[in-house]
Simulated assay, not measured.
Amino acid sequence: MTKLTGRLDDDRRTLVLTRQFDVPAEQLWTDFTDPDRLERWFGAWTGDPASGQVMLTMNAEAESVPAVPCRILHCDRPRRLSVTVTDSFGTWQLAIGFDEDEGSTRLTLRHEEVDLQTVPEVGPGWEWYLDRLTAAVAGEAPPTLEDFVDTYAPMGQDYAVMISGS
């Protein structure tokens, strides 16, 4: 099983996951903000980001997912991107930080105001997506849906233990 990397912040309302990359922050920024690069590991967006909103379509899911609105709350290139995404499951508040030190970048994804009951499903999903990003940055094939089912979904048990405080 892949190692669980997520944790709850002190407020117990924010799920935090990090990854370290041997690339500059600007490159990772582009992996999130350029629709062609985002499509390699997560999905695609259409629209004009200058308007403060784009439409986001996830492309790695098992079934076709309709485009959903993604509102851009904060954009500080290449340090921080904060968005809300509204879909059939509710509104997701996400903040992505890019901290560079000598060409290496620590990416921190914060899923804010997360419903604790959803963490056993949401946590493994973010682990999978961030590992897909890691593979895309390395020029490798990203983990598949089968990998999610076999390797990432079972992490839900560890996330359930984490939210229970055991």
Rank of each mutant, 00 (worst) to 15 (best):
W92A: 13
Y159S: 07
V23K: 06
V54W: 10
R77V: 06
F32W: 15
E100H: 10
E140L: 12
S82E: 15
P35R: 14
A153D: 08
T30L: 14
T18L: 02
L38I: 06
D34A: 15
P143A: 03
E146Q: 07
L133W: 14
R37Q: 09
D22S: 15
A62L: 00
D10T: 12
G43K: 03
L94A: 13
A136G: 08
L116E: 10
G97L: 14
M58E: 08
T5Y: 07
T134P: 03
A67Q: 12
Y152H: 09
R40D: 02
D36T: 07
T84N: 14
Y159F: 07
G47K: 12
V68K: 02
R19C: 04
A50G: 11
T46H: 10
P66M: 09
M162V: 12
D22E: 14
P35S: 08
D22L: 02
E63A: 14
G6E: 03
V119K: 04
E26P: 08
L4H: 02
M155T: 09
N59C: 11
R77F: 02
G47V: 12
T86L: 01
R79S: 10
D158R: 02
G47P: 11
H111D: 08
E100G: 03
T151G: 04
G123C: 07
S88L: 04
A153F: 05
D10Q: 11
G139P: 01
W128E: 09
T91V: 08
P69H: 15
A138Y: 07
A153P: 00
V85M: 13
V85L: 13
L38H: 08
L81C: 05
T151N: 01
P154C: 02
L145W: 02
F42G: 07
R79T: 04
E61H: 02
P124F: 01
A135P: 03
Q157M: 13
D131K: 05
F32C: 10
D76R: 15
P24S: 06
T108H: 12
T108M: 04
F21L: 02
R7M: 05
V54R: 13
T151L: 00
D10K: 09
T134E: 08
A136V: 11
Q20D: 15
R71I: 14
D48C: 04
L28K: 06
T30W: 11
G52Y: 06
L107V: 09
F89G: 00
V119I: 13
L133H: 07
L73G: 11
T84D: 11
P69F: 07
G103W: 06
L107Y: 06
S82F: 06
N59P: 01
R19D: 01
E113P: 01
A135S: 09
Y152Q: 05
L109C: 04
L94D: 10
A138M: 04
V161R: 11
G165F: 00
L94R: 03
E26T: 15
Y152N: 13
E121S: 06
E146A: 13
W29G: 03
P124W: 00
F98Q: 03
